[in-house]
Design a protein around this nucleic acid. Sequence first.
DNA 1: ACGCGTGTTACTGT
DNA 2: GACAGTAACACGCG
Length: 257
Amino acid sequence: MPELPDLQVFSKNLNSIFAGKKLLKIKILNTKKIKDKPEDLSKNLEGNILTSVSRTGKELRFLFANGALLGMHLMLHGNLYLFEKDNENKFTVAELYFENKGLALTDWQGLANITLHPEEKKGIDALSNQLNYDYLKRALQCKAKVKNVITNQDVIRGIGNAYADEILWEARISPFSICSAISENKIHALEKAIKTVLKNAEKQILKKHPDIITGEIRDFLKIHTKEKDVSPDGAVIKADKKGGRITYYTDEQELFL
DNA sequence: ACGCGTGTTACTGT
DNA sequence: GACAGTAACACGCG
């Protein structure tokens, strides 16, 4: 369920809890989406000290002192739970037993997963300094719709359906705009909106739920919510649904064709 | 009760 | 090839 700002907070909190601790055991309970063999995971990770937990795109990364890197993706429904001795959570995909506490990854669909040594993806993280005007300008040299491009993880990593709507409203760009038609001013606005929307969301989440490591907080979203009928400036919020995914937008957003 | 909802991949269609 | 759209994954929640 979570998007980048949630994951950013989770990674900080997981880092506080587990960095410097030794992983005693890793157990895989659902192998459906896990390509690594359980014995390979054990061999590479068990007995090693966790150096840090970080986030890149929508992926969490557990770096160990021996250089091993474990990627974790929560997908739509992944949840993380701490446990003391025994994990009793339903739909557990994997369990990590650290010396101080256990961490369980659950997902009723079984789609959340972990990957040993995840490959470097080609997209740039949404909060990276490399995501500047020049990069966006180049990325937008195409005929696709802007929302499809900014949620394409091969272009920008970390922006999902909900925050894409928030960002495009903040930049006052219609999600249906054709990328190559977007003005330079609006590309600058888009760059700024990506940073401000995501960073502000992280701040809001930290303020209300400083210790959170799972779930999603989005009660501060301005546009992508069915709770609201109008934008902060009073424009009617419209919804466009396709394939079970909803795009929320208003006529305040300039449409480039 | 039943519609919703976040991500990714694989596939079809234009 | 470029781009859009949809199903599948199979539950809890209100």
